[in-house]
Amino acid sequence: MVENQKPQIKVENLLKKFPVEKGFFKRVVGHIKAVNRLNFKIDMGEVLGLVGESGCGKTTLGQTILRAMEPDDGKIYFNFGNGELQNIMEMSKREFRSYRRYMQMIFQDPFSSLDPRKTILDIVGEPLKVNNIARGKELENRVREVVASAGLNVEHIRRFPHAFSGGQRQRIAIARALAPNPRFVVADEPVSALDVSVRAEILNLFKDLQEELELTILFIAHDLSVVRYISDRVAVMYVGKMVEIAETRELYFNPQHPYTEVLMSAIPVPDPRVDKERKILEGEVPSASNPPAGCYFHPRCEYSQDICQKQTPELEEIREDHYAACHFADKLTLRGVK
């Protein structure tokens, strides 16, 4: 699928935990491991979809790999274009600031992500200005350029965000992320807040820009059909852990983890003639501050056995480029989407 198989970003042992506080003086009584020692890589020009249910840590992962939140442990290697991988965790905050332009983000809520007091010119121009990439007339020209490529009218750059609809605001957010010519973009649920007809437009825009600019994207979403449409590979998260990563078709049609199987069967199919039988998950998502022993999924897993309660399975390569964290991954025959 992607010719250039060099990794753009490689994550090792990434950990982000949040303290659980209690009482008058906010004593720390425990930790929620929102991102629990993850290892993965994303190749250059690849779109990795990241799916999982709310609270599984996918948003935290997106923010920690950009160091928008400081990780507690782990290494993040990034290719800044010179062909070698540099560990951005070794850089001081100050040093890292000048590299931020290469890794941008697009947020879910197009209303909260644009400062209402700034014009489009200021918003899209901000990354150019703070990084001293362009100034004055030059900056305005670059802003016009990206605004146009995001499908907006360049005459509107003096307007404020309140003049735009949700879909147009998301285009502005995309223009801002692309203005400093980044190599990597984290898109955190960029279409979840949009209506169906607008969603298609923005997805198409994403696809076009990604191909045109050869961007590497981490696409976070809970909507599995959206991820299916946009991603080259897909990773599935459950309670802070990655349970499966594989090439998109492979993951959807040939899942190797029981949780993925349940997810796939839960997707509502826009076709009334499709057989509606599905796997219904029992119980609830365990709390990340106090996960069950062994495999986190075992209390809800229909294939669970003794070993699952004792030993936490690691992410292992089942087939070429297909990783799953399940003791029985290669033994089970699971059902994908119909």
């Binding site: 983000m105 909260s112 703070v130």
Partner: peptide, 12 residues
């Protein structure tokens, strides 16, 4: 607010 995070990510 996301726009503050966005500014941080932009390198401000």
């Amino acid at each position: 607010e996301d726009y503050v995070t966005a500014a941080k990510i932009a390198g401000a």
